[in-house]
Amino acid sequence: MFIHILNLKKSYQSGVVTTEVLKGIEMKLEKGGIGVILGPSGSGKSTLMNIIGGIDRGDSGSVVVDGIEVNQLDDNKLTTYRREQIGFVFQFYNLVPSLTVSENIEVVSHISHSPLNMDEVLEAVGIKDKKHRFPRELSGGEQQRVSIARAIIKNPKLLLCDEPTGALDYSTSRSILQLLQQVNEKYGTTILMITHNTAIAAMADRVFKLRSGEIVAESVNQIPVPAERIEW
């Protein structure tokens, strides 16, 4: 298994109040697969993804990603883990406004051991002609493409996408999902996506439904639907 999570628990202390965010999560995803985590606000999706991405740590349990026990890594090793293994795609793109498209992608290639070719990636995400533009000069969909290009330039083993279509309209969202599927196919990148949008689950190999810090349902799609056929 590429991702193997066992009995993961996480709680936050706020004054005298303790909030249990994850209550013993069990989860598996195979290498090269696409996983979708569905759930309402406050269900713990982001916390789970943060722990898998090495941004946060669980209180107990085991989180193994490609053989690495993420929950046991110290700060330095977590940094190296994020740097080498993980690509992030955010809902609001998180591009650096003062840098051009190509420079935003360089933010990641600059610290990668063996990054992919910049032009090839720009070509793959369909924004080669906009490499000298600033984020403000791009549409939301184009900005998300830059965000995806930035994430895949280092050829990560795992691509974590936090509501990648949450700020986009219907047709742009579909094109972004298509792009993610293409990345998965072309580079063999494992993708884990969190979303509110249940329709997106159709394109995943595995779907996890989260509610109040627990996985309440897990399903496997034998034949995932191509993104261009997804409708909502």
Partner: peptide, 11 residues
């Protein structure tokens, strides 16, 4: 904190 980037986008 790293969570700042996750809470809001710069763009």
């Amino acid at each position: 904190a790293m969570s700042d980037a996750l809470k809001s986008g710069t763009e």
